[in-house]
Nucleic acid binder design. Structure first.
Lengths: 230, 230
DNA sequence: CGATTCTTTGACTAGGATCAATGGGCGTGG
DNA sequence: CCACGCCCATTGATCCTAGTCAAAGAATCG
């Protein structure tokens, strides 16, 4: 079992809705698991017998075509929820982008527990509604934005989401370290790695950002970046 | 108030989880409203004081850029739920694509009612999870598929969703009438109207489908269509 | 320090967008 | 009932953005 009372994401995850006794009960069902970067937790199309909370690290949700094209359809951060309650098979793969630690539950047991704990279910509903809004917003980006708009939008969103995650470089939200490489940015934006790279290089020479290292981004002209995001 | 007991979507909408007394209570909060084709119910970015169930007709959820580009991020059919519980402003516009009828609730009242009715909330959660899966699936289409794959995927999905809606032409799921025109298909697929039109013409001359009238589609070679969907 | 992996850069191509004109259905009014 | 006008869809010609193919250049890891 797991000691939920001292959990790092205790206050931010859906578990925050539970009282100490309930927490103990849930803790008995869950177990912590480490995941190495690159390791896949759930496979698209497979029966998904588990759901989980992310304690540490970043994971991606991926949908792939038969011929190998990939689209990242979601990025999961600590305190976020993984998996498909009330479902059978996972509609996407879940793969760790960094070393990660998750708190895993048997899906059936979790479904039942959720059924008996409306507060937990409401938290889950709120989160799911937020995710849906985010996904739909992303659909606009994928369907209607140009490469430069995509990259600018992406950097701005990342600068927000990575704030308060301890990922900042230099302490401001304008500097941050991405937890993934160029190919993954491309898979998020529906671009190729070359186009992504070219856009970043262009933005640097235009003075919108610095690229101190492969994964570090420092936005130096946020106004221009926002204008470019469209 | 509204007579929920005789509602056309009574068994399919989220209200299906309620017993007669609860239904009566919810009925007191709701009111039916007719919406003309083209009329916008909720505006992107505005405070959205209502949620609703669709009784009849088809509506679209639209996200737009400042310069007027539009992306349809969701299509809403009878028995589907509209609006953003626990939210403030609507993240997208909701516009009727056909004449429609909806059952409207004050959002705050609905939120409170939902809070006291876990079954309703669970139905809502299931629906939202399904919508999220659909949205994510659509992200792959928008980000990674070619124009022909997009159109083929779209037609196949529509043939499924319009089945059992009384929209069939000729009674099989291969023939159906779209509730919208070419521009809207383009806005769903992240294409231009010209590209959409060209793809349909091409498919017709390749013998994959017939286009008996502007809005009717008859898929004549479903296997080929599926192969083309990627 | 060498091997591998990831990223950048370059040259070229192609798919879809754009611009422009024509065609066809449908409703309205003569 | 037909003619006109409007709206939507189709088709054509051209352009341009992003994709593809290829190679060189940096990080990273053993």
């Amino acid at each position: 079992m797991t000691d939920c009372a001292s959990c790092v994401v205790r206050n931010r995850a859906i578990c925050a809705s539970l009282n100490p006794e309930e927490l103990l009960l849930l803790g008995k069902m869950g177990r912590k698991q480490r995941v190495k970067a690159g390791q896949t937790l759930l496979w698209e199309g497979d029966d998904a017998p588990v759901v989980a909370n992310v304690l540490e690290g970043v994971l991606k949700l991926v949908v792939a075509t038969a011929d190998g094209r990939e689209q990242i359809v979601g990025i999961v951060f600590p305190s976020d929820f993984i998996g498909r309650p009330f479902g059978k098979e996972s509609p996407y793969s879940v793969t760790a982008m960094t070393d990660a630690e998750v708190c895993i539950f048997n899906r059936n047991a979790f479904d039942e527990f959720a059924g008996n704990h409306p507060d937990l279910q409401q938290k889950l509903l709120r989160r799911t509604l937020d995710e849906l809004d985010r996904a739909r917003h992303w659909m606009m980006l994928l369907g209607r934005k140009s490469a430069s708009e995509k990259v600018a939008s992406f950097l701005l969103e990342m600068s927000e989401r990575l704030s308060g995650q301890g990922c900042q470089v230099g302490g401001t939200r304008n500097g941050f370290e991405l937890p993934f490489g160029r190919q993954q940015i491309a898979d998020i934006l529906g671009l190729t790695i070359e186009t992504t790279s070219r856009q970043l290089t262009r933005m640097r020479s235009d003075g919108l950002l610095d690229l101190p290292s492969r994964r570090e981004i420092v936005i130096t002209d946020r106004d221009a970046m926002e204008a470019m995001a469209g």
